[in-house]
């Protein structure tokens, strides 16, 4: 199980791109942190979620 945005999620082996699309996130409008480090966008399509990963997906909305 990985912890994603504070919740235990069974997403092992899922690519970050797959997780984003399954959960309605636009890759252009997010920042993804894995175990406290920012994940470059170029790595979204080659990074698989591992057991015990702590992931934060921040989705941005417009307005300011």
């Amino acid at each position: 199980m990985a912890k994603i945005n504070g919740e235990e999620v069974n997403a092992n082996n899922l690519l970050i791109t797959e997780f984003l699309s399954e959960n309605g996130y636009s890759p252009e409008r997010v920042a993804v942190m894995i175990n406290g480090e920012i994940l470059p966008k170029a790595d979204y399509a080659k990074t698989r979620i591992s057991d015990n990963d702590e992931i934060e997906v921040v989705g941005f909305v417009g307005g300011g």
């Binding site: 409008r29 941005f60 300011g64």
Partner: peptide, 27 residues
């Protein structure tokens, strides 16, 4: 929203340890 994500990603990826405080969702 896209510009927010771009600059936050770029600043956090930079080697310097700059802290980033972003705003999202106040409409």
């Amino acid at each position: 929203a896209k510009s927010k994500a771009e600059i936050v990603n770029a600043l956090l990826l930079s080697s310097r340890k700059v802290k980033v405080i972003s705003g999202s969702g106040m409409a």
